[in-house]
Design a protein around this nucleic acid. Structure first.
Lengths: 152, 152
DNA sequence: ACTGAAACAAGGTTAAC
DNA sequence: GTTAACCTTGTTTCAGT
């Protein structure tokens, strides 16, 4: 696993914007021939810098217009509580992010649902699978920025 | 803009998992010929269900191992405060998400930085660009789940 | 109107330098 | 790193259901 140079960064920058460019245009953008480019990309893949290539869908069009952040506060709990919490949240496709936060007893959940009724179903499902003492939800009114691009 | 059927959903499911499969294998997965598949994908693109295709990078490898959520509480402010806030956050590449939350005076920011020093730089930069009264930060200790896949 | 089969062209992959 | 051959696969055309 090598260190990354300036040209690699530029390639990554392009790919995390749009992975559908041809090697030709990509090479042109970073000043490289078609397969010099190809070989670098391949290296970036095998070394794990590139985790994968995915399609990004329109949540509104798919009737998933409501994004909710749930803050879970949990008091003392059995040692395997985290296990069942992880398993439960990972198995629920509406939940797109789960994070253990600083402060030890806090978890943050991000989920996508159709509407309030959808949120309630999600909430009911979740507390049925894993005991949660204190849950508070905040809803996204406006998405000012949302990107998968990392700063390079 | 049409409604989406079951086969389209299966295609979208595949593509948001991995957009690098050939039309051949994709078609096999959903029970379609190569270009029946192709035409559906094309329709899903032009109708906007597919917003784009991107590469997902490894944040740790790129020295962006610290994810932080910042909660911004703002009291009364000039009518164009939101404008300058939006412009400022959108121009900062470390910031990967900005949301106006329910409760009217709350904004949530997600950012990726290298470490605490990186967070402090980001914070200093941000408050230099736009006046913020009350900012609290929570740091991600453990990423239990993180996906771009929407539930279908 | 939507399907599949086959021809075609573009672009990813390999080999040679 | 480059150029050029190669061959997979995306794209277009066409005919059938």
């Amino acid at each position: 696993m090598e260190a990354i140079d300036h040209t690699d960064r530029r390639i990554l920058m392009q790919l995390q914007r749009d992975t559908d460019q041809s090697l030709e245009s990509l090479g042109a953008a970073v000043g490289l021939s078609r397969n010099a480019c190809w070989r670098r990309i391949r290296a970036l893949e095998t070394s794990g810098f590139i985790k994968g290539r995915v399609a990004l869908l329109d949540a509104d069009k798919l009737n998933l217009g409501l994004t909710v952040f749930m803050q879970v506060r949990t008091s003392a709990h059995a040692p395997d509580w985290l296990d069942s919490f992880s398993t439960a949240t990972r198995s629920m496709p509406e939940i797109t992010g789960v994070y253990r936060m600083s402060g030890e007893l806090d978890y943050l959940i991000r989920a996508k649902v159709a509407d309030m009724a959808g949120y309630d179903r999600l909430y009911q499902n979740l507390i049925r699978k894993v005991p949660l003492s204190d849950v508070s939800a905040s809803f996204v009114m406006e998405e000012i920025k949302e990107t998968t691009q990392l700063p390079l």
